[in-house]
Design a protein around this nucleic acid. Structure first.
Lengths: 158, 158
DNA sequence: CGACCATCGTTTGTGTACGAACAATTCAGG
DNA sequence: CCTGAATTGTTCGTACACAAACGATGGTCG
């Protein structure tokens, strides 16, 4: 028999007899991480200014602008996407003309990616918005709280 | 023209002339939230003990055990899933015999959900594992750091 | 009563996420 | 050199995530 919300007071009284420990979804890290991420993507979509551009597509382009020409898998590692996910992300960015692909002359397994002119323009415009998105996501926290939070969050990200 | 990694030293020198401010993906909240969530789901899948059970399915069942019989949309609100997502999650849990559904006699639009016997058994077993998953996710942090982190994270989750 | 609007659950379409299997290529060791 | 292991990119299948449109039902207000 599952514990109901109304049983909680009673359960506190005879906690030793309880076979099923409490489990409050609202207090679990996973649930909070998921909701915080949901909130962030909503802010992203409302702020980025391009209806079609998704957080992963944006991340791939920003990273590509950062490191220059790289292979698909390498860019995937840098942005924490697996090869299968990368496949779809790059396909859409190529379809929109933001990224170009050419075979690596030194390793015929590889496909080298670069930003097109349109891609570079988009990156230039989106950079400011990207910072705005990060700011707005952290807006509920004070400046010092933000620093603490980011430091701890980074340690939970491997 | 995008800034390359090798331009960063120069950019620091004439920051005022820079049109495109730096954007390091690794320092952005959204990216860190995504990676922390990825890590959590990996821990979940390795610890929950049921290959087929996903984090959302688990969340729906735990919440249903908590509040008792409710409608599909209501459970969706309690677990932060929209109606379309809920549709699939509940469908799979019904197919596996963990949840039963009956029409609400007082409101013919609603479908009331309950745990089956098998569902209650699963919840009882999975509760301990659920806590273990939360602990392991927070393992990189000290006990006091965990408290601080959860408090801040909760404020970023709406 | 009747028009209007909100809510419930469903379906469709697009985009992550990732395991698994695959062919082509490269690399390492014997 | 040559067999076997590793890497690269692709495809398939399943499961979130959410916008949008839909039919059915319920509630409100003139």
């Amino acid at each position: 028999m599952p514990w109901r919300a109304t049983d909680r007071a009673e359960l506190t009284l005879n906690a030793e007899a309880a076979e099923a420990p409490e489990y409050l979804l609202e207090d679990q890290v996973g649930h909070l991480l998921r909701r915080a991420h949901q909130r962030h993507t909503a802010i992203f979509q409302a702020t980025i200014g391009d209806e079609q551009l998704t957080p992963l597509q944006f991340a791939a382009m920003m990273k590509l602008a950062d490191v220059g020409e790289t292979s698909q898998n390498q860019l995937g590692r840098l942005t924490a996407m697996d090869a299968a996910t990368m496949q779809g992300v790059i396909k859409r960015l190529i379809a929109r003309g933001f990224i170009a692909r050419r075979p690596d002359p030194d390793d015929r397994r590889r496909l080298l990616l670069t930003l097109t002119g349109a891609g570079e323009s988009l990156v230039a415009e989106a950079t400011v918005r990207g910072h705005k998105i990060s700011d707005e996501t952290l807006e509920p926290l004070s400046p010092s709280e933000r620093q603490v939070f980011l430091k701890l969050l980074r340690r939970l990200s491997d």
